[in-house]
Design a protein around this nucleic acid. Structure first.
Lengths: 205, 205
DNA sequence: GCTTTTCCTGACCGTATGGTCAAGAAAAGA
DNA sequence: TCTTTTCTTGACCATACGGTCAGGAAAAGC
């Protein structure tokens, strides 16, 4: 009676409309934050009526959680792709470039997560523990192995990871500020070259 | 009839209550963002009634703007304190440490600005241009002078500044995430050592 | 003391917003 | 085709929230 048959597999219309809604929600949530987003805005952006939105999702929060869960994997993919068998320096530099690329190509996703975490991760705190932490632990261990083997300069692996996130996501999350300070100059090329220099100098023994 | 005498100098009570309100507003705005903050929350936090809040400020937005304006100077102080006559490397490292210290001591202020800028700086866009940009231009020029004089490694000065902001403010803005990933380990000491290494390696010729 | 100004609040208002519901339209199944 | 299920919506509701106002309490000025 309520949700579109939670048992049977989603129909063609269901798939289309759920996608429409989630796309619209990404746009609205990332631009206004959870509290600033309204169902009316999402409905307008999706081209659907508000009650119809609530036919597919039980409420605003479920849309938000579904979004975050669905994007988490994509967001963490570059870190999963670090190859333990590859060359340490090149693997990390490739990770940095991929993250920067994602800041440029998916700024909405970046801001969605940024908004959520700044507010204390009230709706995905558990997911950070369950999804993110194991991956970071694993990656930190990999980095530490490389350092112990003398293939990278010695440093705290977790803070290294934080610095990569911070420096790359900054260009998406703080774009408004970057734009003011860089005027019309091309941002991405400069960032790419700078971060290459930064991590090459930092990590090379 | 409306605002507490905009002409005469503020009374003792006015100074006390405006401070109470701004302190409470900092707490609430930084934790929930502009849209998530409510006058009722601010009033409760300040220990005043809602109408009394509106006796001292014309509305929610004025409180927010007053806060941002009042904190901007404090927030930018470390950058102003960079000494053009000092040793380039040490001056920048001191700046990095001061910024990190501010992230630890004033995380609310950091998140207040972060919230505002992520949403596109709708309420302080003009202030970024008028207040921040000249200072950054000046500082970037100083850094470029040092590089040209062969006292620092060559790189883009603006991206260097961005990286310092990003890496230091990350510990305040994304604290919820950092806490999950660092468990009970002490964060600040590690960050301090890591960033020292990072910028020393990056900037040394 | 008295008067004036400043400070404070309970009650109220208009609007925005998340969410509901009954009933109709469109697909899908037979 | 007819029947059943899925999809869609206008109208509505309850609450939250920013803000107002008339009038009273407390300071300040004299």
């Amino acid at each position: 009676m309520n949700n579109p048959s939670p048992i049977r597999k989603p129909s063609r219309i269901q798939k289309r409309n759920r996608k429409l809604i989630l796309d619209a929600a990404l746009e609205v949530f990332s631009a206004h934050g959870y509290r600033g987003a309204t169902l009316d805005l999402i409905a307008a952006e999706a081209g659907l009526s508000k009650p119809n939105i609530l036919y597919y999702f039980t409420g605003k929060e479920e849309i938000h959680i579904t979004l975050l869960n669905g994007l988490m994997d994509t967001w963490l993919a570059p870190m999963r792709e670090i190859d333990p068998a590859g060359d340490p320096l090149e693997e990390i530099l490739r990770y940095v470039h991929r993250k920067l690329e994602m800041s440029r190509e998916f700024p909405r996703e970046s801001r969605l997560f940024a908004n959520e975490i700044i507010q204390g991760a009230p709706r995905i705190g558990s997911h950070l523990k369950a999804g993110l932490k194991p991956l970071v632990d694993e990656t930190a261990a990999l980095f530490e192995g490389w350092m112990a083997a003398g293939k990278l300069a010695q440093m705290d692996a977790r803070h290294l990871i934080f610095s990569i996130w911070a420096t790359t996501q900054h260009y998406a999350d703080f774009d408004a500020q970057v734009q003011v300070l860089m005027q019309d100059q091309p941002v991405h090329e400069g960032a790419d070259a700078f971060l290459d220099t930064l991590y090459r100098r930092l990590l090379t023994i």
